Computed example of a mutant assay.
Amino acid sequence: MRQLTGLHHVTAISATIRQNYAFYSRVLGMRLVKRTVNQDDTSAYHLFYADGAGTPGSDLTFFDWPLPPEHRGTCSIIRTGLRVNGSEALAWWAEHLRTTGVWVGDIVQRDNRLTLDLEDPEGQRLMLVDDGGIGEFVPWQRSPVPVEYQIRGLGPVLLSVPRLELTDAMLRLVLGMQLHHTYVHPDFPEQPVHVYTIGQGGPAAEVHVVAQPNLPIAQAGAGGVHHVAFRVSTFVEHQDWARWLRELRIPNSGIVDRYYFRSIYVREPNGILFELATDEPGFAVDEPTDTLGERLALPPFLESRRAQIEAGLKPLDTD
């Protein structure tokens, strides 16, 4: 059966990768579960932050590209959700984040959930969302954040598009999502936000979309999101998705073996890049689980170039 099960990862762009590493591992307390490179641009790190085991659906990842800041606008992913458990956790985060000097909003009720908006030092727009403690999560015992307050995984992603009907068709008719409900977002009350659910739904399996036809088209850059990936359970089901896209004659990358998962890349009609990524085999395919992310990991086809690749990368742990 061809069924997506939730969000797999969100990949964003950082122009200050050491600062990025310090913020996500030390301030947000996420575990760096894979320290590797962009397989299409080996001069750049590709860092994966996640829960304690690198569970699919908990990954927030970054390309290390020295770009100017993103020019915000439509045709883009404008906020990425991260799940935490309960109002007490959100209160802890509000106090914790205000001491770091990053921008943080107020705890508010939005779409019947408590949320807390924040931005990382490069302006990456995030939101902490109360998930009620439901769903997969493996704590990281070495995190500077107490277990009860740790980030549990990805929450809803919020997309801005100029024409809702085009994205709606992609999400529902091609990817099999359900339009569940709408709500009013206080930042743009003139347009309802449409909530699409994946599989069984819930905060780890939602895409929120708002139509903003009067905005300029976003220009990619540091502090912006590159793409969002959705979960496919197995390689066999992934092949079914590839066949389905071929049958519909929708342009796509075909299956790309990323070693830690397999991917299919496809753009929805408003230009936002989607990825269908497998849960298997996972990040422990080439490293022990207890030492994930502590060394540069390269897929086998890049291993012969290790010395050259390492020479071109900046040490992450140097302040």
Rank of each mutant, 00 (worst) to 15 (best):
L158A: 01
W244I: 01
M127A: 13
P251M: 13
R305W: 11
T11R: 09
D290Y: 06
L158K: 03
Q200D: 13
L298N: 02
L67G: 00
K314Q: 14
L118H: 04
P56R: 09
R31N: 07
E247Y: 13
S160T: 01
R172Q: 15
A22G: 12
T234G: 03
F63T: 08
R98L: 02
Y45I: 08
R142N: 13
Q109G: 12
R267Q: 13
A15D: 12
V102K: 02
G52S: 07
G29W: 03
T197M: 06
I217K: 15
M127T: 14
T61F: 10
G221E: 08
Y196A: 08
L245A: 01
L118M: 15
M127R: 14
L154P: 09
L175G: 06
V285K: 13
I309G: 11
L276H: 04
Y260E: 00
V174A: 09
V157Y: 02
T182P: 00
P300V: 09
A242P: 00
R258V: 02
R79M: 03
G199R: 09
I151Y: 04
T291L: 03
G155H: 08
L313K: 05
R305F: 11
A218H: 09
R305E: 15
P66I: 08
V232G: 01
L158S: 04
E294N: 09
V102G: 07
V104S: 13
N214Q: 14
G6W: 10
L173V: 02
G221H: 06
H71Q: 15
T5D: 02
T289G: 04
F62D: 08
F23H: 12
L158T: 15
T99L: 13
L128I: 11
Q39K: 09
R163H: 15
N112T: 10
N214V: 03
G201R: 09
D286L: 01
I272C: 12
L118N: 04
Q109H: 01
I198G: 05
L302T: 07
P299E: 03
P146Q: 11
I250T: 09
V84G: 03
T5F: 02
R110H: 00
G282P: 00
F261D: 06
L179F: 02
W241G: 03
Q39N: 12
E148N: 08
S87A: 14
A205P: 01
V256H: 02
S253F: 12
P186I: 07
H208S: 05
I134T: 14
V108F: 03
G54Q: 10
R249F: 00
V228E: 07
P156M: 06
P186A: 06
V209D: 06
F63A: 06
F63C: 10
D279K: 01
L82R: 13
N252E: 02
L273F: 02
